[in-house]
Structure formats: structure tokens, C-alpha cells
């Protein structure tokens, strides 16, 4: 494999890894803080990209569409949390049923509104160019996705370790009872976390639009992959999700070259290997 081809693969893997990171970051923090396996997370991704698609058809620019759909999805997240999730804290199996039901409802509503035809999104004009790497060209937009992903990781790291809210969330992951004992309104924190997670899902949905497109049934593909990222990284760990997502992105890309016959399975195999070596994920805390 020549260096130029290697770089193309590497960047491709990273670009997809970043998309997975953005969606998994929301999922993992919801899991870590609120202890909810949000099976409707994939549909929030779907909603994000469909809404941006609509805004762009209304002649909004890509950037405005991005902001609008992230904001709207976050609001939807707030509604979901206040109306439904709030009722079932601490009841794991009910959560599974509820978020699964919500996923059904949201995905089918999206199908109702946006139709069944697969769609795609245009790359914003500003980024619609490519760079040459040796004999190959590489679309600039993917570099942009990598950049945004890294920025987000930095932002989250700063947020988590340097701000008060970050400290509260960190404490929430470690010990929920303590947070409420400190007189912090846990309900508000939970709503905020859920909305934040929903917004991140929409962000990756919009950024992924030009790469993956929108189609019926994509929510479950996305959900499974991001759950795997969360598990590999360890529940509630942003750092873990970042590393896990990059791992998944790279192994998917390079797996196509090195183990073409395993392409259906390679992501699952990676997860099994990680879990056998470290049952709590790469950066998860030891399970008592």
C-alpha cells in the first residue's frame, strides 16, 4: 500500500470515526449521567439530517440549516425528556421499551413527513473542493468533518474538566446521590444533558448528511454502531467514545482491505475482543 493510498484510507476512517464520535458522545453522556440506554438516539440523528435537508431546500445556507436543526432537535430532546423519560428514571427495562417505542414513532413520523425516497444533502459550496494526495484526490469536506470532530473533543474536554457544569456532570456519572445532596437540581441537569445529547446527534446527522444521506431504516444502523462505540469506550466516558469511534472508523476502513470477507462483522468482533480483555470498556470504570 503506497503512502498516498494509506493516507486516503486513514483520513476516510477518521472522518467516519468523527461522525460516530459525535453521535456516541451524546449517547454515552446520557448513559453515564442519566443511566438511560436511549434507543431513540438514532432517530434523533435521522431527524437532524432530514430537518437540515428541509431548511436547505428553503434556501437557507448549510450553516444556518445546521444551527437550526441542532437547535430544534435539542428542543425535541427537552420535550422527550420532560414528557417521557422523566417518568421512568431508574427502571431500566421500562426505559428500553419506552425509548424503543419512541424510536418507532419518530422514525415513522419522519418517513411520513419526508417520504420513503432516499435523499442526500449537497456539500456546502465553501467546502466543495478536493485536495490531491499523490495520484488520488480527497474531498475536502471529509477533512472538515475530521476537524470539527477534533474541535468538539477539545471543547468537551475543556467543558468537562474546567467548568462548573462539567464538574457537576462528572460528579453525576460517579455518584448521582451526591449531586442531589449538594443541592443541585438534578432534574434540570438531566434535561440539559438529554437536550445536549440530542443536539449532538443532530449535529452528526447534519454533518453526515452529505456523506451517508438519508434513507428509511438508517436509524437502526446508526444506533447499533454508536452503541458499539459507547461500549468499546466505556459508559459515560467522552474520552472513551473518542478513542472508540476512531478505532471503529479505522477498523471499518482498513478491514475492507485486509479482511474483506469479514466486513459485515469486523466492528462486532472488535467489540467482543475489547470486552473480553476489558469487560468495562477501554475507559470505563471497574464494575463492582
Amino acid at each position: 500500500m503506497s503512502l498516498s493510498i494509506f493516507s486516503v484510507q486513514l483520513l476516510t476512517g477518521l472522518a467516519y470515526g468523527m461522525l460516530y464520535f459525535m453521535i456516541a458522545a451524546g449517547l454515552t453522556i446520557i448513559l453515564g449521567v442519566m443511566n438511560i440506554v436511549n434507543l431513540a438516539h438514532g432517530t434523533l440523528f435521522l431527524l437532524g439530517s432530514y430537518m437540515a435537508f428541509t431548511f436547505m431546500n428553503q434556501q437557507f445556507s448549510f450553516w444556518i440549516a445546521l444551527l437550526l436543526s441542532v437547535a430544534v432537535t435539542a428542543v425535541i430532546g427537552i420535550i422527550i425528556e420532560k414528557l417521557f423519560i422523566r417518568q421512568i428514571y431508574g427502571k431500566e427495562l421500562e426505559q428500553v421499551l419506552l425509548t424503543f417505542g419512541l424510536a418507532f414513532v419518530i422514525a415513522d413520523t419522519a418517513k411520513w413527513i419526508w417520504g420513503t425516497e432516499p435523499q442526500t444533502m449537497a456539500v456546502p459550496a465553501l467546502l466543495d473542493s478536493s485536495i490531491s494526495i499523490g495520484p488520488m484526490v480527497f474531498p475536502f469536506y471529509r477533512l472538515f468533518v475530521v476537524l470539527i470532530g477534533c474541535l468538539l473533543a477539545l471543547l468537551l474536554w475543556y467543558f468537562e474538566s474546567k467548568t462548573r457544569i462539567g464538574a457537576i456532570i462528572r460528579a453525576g456519572v460517579d455518584d448521582r446521590a451526591m449531586v442531589s445532596a449538594l443541592g443541585i437540581n438534578v432534574g434540570v441537569v438531566f434535561t440539559g444533558v438529554f437536550a445536549f445529547g440530542a443536539g449532538l446527534a443532530a449535529l452528526s446527522g447534519v454533518l453526515g448528511g452529505p456523506l451517508i444521506g438519508m434513507y428509511t431504516g438508517m436509524e437502526s444502523d446508526i444506533l447499533v454502531t454508536s452503541l458499539i462505540v459507547v461500549v468499546i469506550g466505556g459508559l459515560g466516558s467522552w474520552k472513551g467514545s473518542f478513542i472508540g469511534a476512531i478505532l471503529i472508523g479505522l477498523i471499518e476502513t482498513f478491514g475492507k482491505i485486509w479482511f474483506p470477507s469479514l466486513s459485515m462483522l469486523i466492528v462486532f468482533l472488535l467489540m467482543v475482543v475489547v470486552l473480553i480483555i476489558r469487560p468495562q470498556g477501554l475507559f470505563g470504570r471497574e464494575v463492582a
Binding site: 484510507q9 495520484p135 488520488m136 456523506l211 451517508i212
Partner: peptide, 27 residues
């Protein structure tokens, strides 16, 4: 349901055939 064909496209670029025939449906 492959998301990304970059790997296969670099393959094509290396093999340099006179044409590519692809069957892919939907998204």
C-alpha cells in the same frame, strides 16, 4: 449498506480498468 466506498475506489484507481460496472440500489 456500506457507508463508504473510498477503499474500493482507490482500488479501482490502482487497477485502472477501461470502465467500472456497478450494481448498487437505493442509498
Amino acid at each position: 449498506g456500506t457507508n463508504d466506498f473510498a477503499t474500493y475506489l482507490t482500488d479501482v484507481a490502482q487497477v485502472k480498468p477501461e470502465l467500472v460496472f456497478t450494481f448498487m440500489a437505493g442509498s
